[in-house]
């Protein structure tokens, strides 16, 4: 939205200011029960206190390492599965619709099974996030690799490039943009599912802390945690777009 004129930026700024002011005024005059919307200054001071505690950073650490593991597994298995499936045209034709049909089932349904099998600790969240992230990565890898122009492959073979060289120098560059989209979608799905798994059924991590603050009827603390997640999501969004643009620019 770089080309949008200053006026619309101004409206956006005005919108944000209005929302924050409304929040402040509502807290000031207790227009909304503080249990649902605590005053903005209470949330701010709660956030300030929160980031000084050790539990805050350990919860952040748990969640980040869970996301990293889940996403790592999803990337490795997704790209590998996509590569293996596209090895044969027959396999692609048989399996691609199966994988995309499976992806239309909300994996959230299986969360109780993940908890049952992997326990209530971080392992079940890793598995759940990895399962969710796997599908977009695998589907995009299949889409990317199966559309590599076969003449390029024939040319590479004619020039005597090894199997590894073909993957490295022909298939990877040709399929990369589509795979990159899958990697981005997979990341945000893994991110949201790990937080969701933590919120619904967990003993530690950011999601658990949000649910716990709600259970203890400490809305200011809960909002402080939500603010942290929203800020993290926006920063990650910007960072991932920047990385993606740089990688596409090559």
């Amino acid at each position: 939205m770089k080309d949008s004129p200053a006026a619309s930026r101004l409206i956006q700024l005005g919108f944000l200011t209005a929302a924050l002011t409304a929040w402040y005024v509502a807290g000031r005059f207790s227009a909304i029960p503080p249990l649902f919307l605590p005053p903005i200054d209470a949330v701010w001071s709660s956030l300030n206190g929160l980031i000084r505690t050790e539990e805050f950073w350990s919860a952040i650490g748990v969640t980040l390492s869970t996301i990293a593991k889940a996403y790592g597994i999803a990337v490795v298995l997704g790209v590998l599965a996509g590569y293996l499936v596209t090895r044969s045209r027959f396999l692609t034709a048989v399996l691609e619709p199966v994988i995309s049909a499976l992806f239309s089932i909300p994996i959230t349904l299986f969360l109780p099974l993940f908890i049952l099998v992997f326990g209530i600790g971080t392992a079940s969240k890793v598995a759940y996030g990895a399962a969710y992230g796997f599908f977009p990565i695998a589907l995009n890898t299949i889409a990317g690799l199966s559309r590599v122009d076969r003449r390029y492959l024939a040319a590479a073979r004619a020039l005597g490039i090894s199997a590894f060289g073909t993957v490295r120098h022909v298939m990877w560059p040709a399929a990369f943009p589509v795979i990159l989209t899958g990697l981005r979608i997979g990341f945000f799905i893994a991110f949201a599912s790990v937080l969701g798994g933590e919120t619904i059924s967990s003993v530690e991590g950011v999601g658990r802390n949000i649910a716990l603050s709600a259970e203890l009827l400490e809305p200011a603390r809960m909002y402080a945690w939500i603010v942290v997640v929203v800020a993290a999501a926006l920063v990650l969004n910007g960072a991932v777009s920047a990385i993606e643009n740089r990688m596409r620019g090559e």
Binding site: S4, Q12, F15, L35, G207, A211, V230
Partner: peptide
Amino acid sequence: EMARRSFYPVVLLLYAIPQVVMLPLVTLV
């Protein structure tokens, strides 16, 4: 045009937030 330029980025921004963290709040309300 004006409304779209002003509010579409706000909508996209909100769309990018993992809503699941609001679940305890929704239950509270």
